[in-house]
């Protein structure tokens, strides 16, 4: 078996192990709590905690009468949410990168604007997500665009900070080396600073990817139209007493959407950056 195949197999087994452990814990909790008659912290009855196999089966039932299976509908919703997040992610990444480059070239720009860039994090950005979408609707922006703007906002800060840190990471002697070659600032940027910054930028991108997904879901909440994950989560939450499995299944799919996005970025990172250069996390 090749090394790559072995790694995939090992990953597959780990995933299976995790699922099995989770099912055991869940069902075990239900069994023991029911037997002992305990109710805290969560009631073990089938309404509140449906059996894991019921949740799994719900994926393959039709979502509505004579409709396509639940899993299809939810995956489509996830894809829609992800698309919105991804566009914003790209924009935010570009802006963040640009800011990093600007700040490394101009100390004045850094002094003037960096405190802002940092302060932007103290405003709970995701907190304005619903407001941005409602506002977008009021000024006739398509909903997907508002959601993308949220993702962009969530992305630009970590990328800017990490780009700056990465651009400054080369040892002073490397800068002296470039100066000894009479390099132009542009050459120093693209031949030394940017390649050195890549591991840092990818770390930020992974964080931003996860944040963009949450931002997209939350942004979809108040408007609640369209077929995105946010609306579905709210809807199944309201239908909880009738069909609790649906909510759990939908949350599961939302989780997988986040993992898929971050996984994509991680895969790119593994391709472009050798293992000896990757930063922890």
């Amino acid at each position: 078996m090749g090394g790559a195949n072995r790694r995939v197999a090992r990953a597959g087994i780990s995933i299976l192990a995790v699922v099995v452990v989770f099912v055991l814990l869940w069902e075990g909790y239900k069994l023991i709590w029911t037997a002992m008659g305990w109710e805290n912290p969560v009631r073990p009855d089938d309404r509140t905690m449906p059996h894991t196999w019921d949740i799994f089966l719900a994926l393959f039932q039709p979502a509505q009468r004579n409709g396509p299976p639940f899993i299809f509908v939810e995956l489509r919703a996830a894809l829609m949410t992800l698309r919105e997040a991804f566009v914003g992610f790209l924009i935010g990444g570009a802006v963040g990168f640009g800011l990093g480059v600007l700040f490394v070239r101009s100390t004045m720009a850094e002094r003037a604007f960096m405190p802002y860039v940092v302060a932007s994090q103290t405003v709970p950005i995701i907190a304005i997500a619903p407001m941005v979408v409602v506002w977008g609707g009021r000024v006739n922006l398509p909903q997907w665009l508002s959601v993308s703007l949220i993702a962009a906002y969530l992305t630009f800060f970590p990328v800017a900070i990490n780009t700056l840190r990465g651009l400054r990471s080369p040892h002073p002697t490397s800068m002296e080396l470039m100066r000894s070659y009479a390099s132009t600032p542009r050459e120093v940027l693209w031949k030394l600073q940017v390649p050195a910054a890549m591991p840092y930028i990818f770390t930020a991108l992974k964080v931003s990817a996860a944040a963009s997904v949450i931002g997209a879901i939350v942004g979809e909440l108040p408007a609640g139209l369209r077929g995105g994950l946010g609306r579905d989560l709210l809807q199944f939450s309201q239908q909880f007493t009738a069909a609790p499995e649906k909510l759990f299944a939908a949350v599961l799919i939302a989780g997988l959407a986040g993992i898929a996005f971050v996984g994509l970025i991680t895969a790119l990172e593994h391709r472009w950056i050798g293992s000896h250069r990757r930063l922890a996390g």
């Binding site: 912290p41 939450s237 609790p244 909510l247 939302a254 989780g255 986040g258 993992i259 971050v262």
Partner: peptide, 23 residues
């Protein structure tokens, strides 16, 4: 640890409706 790193990538806030119903 690897499990935590993977779970950290999920939109954890999506658990909110579940917790609202539970508690």
């Amino acid at each position: 640890l690897p499990l935590a790193i993977v779970l950290n990538a999920t939109p954890i806030a999506a658990l909110a409706p579940i917790f609202n119903n539970w508690f």
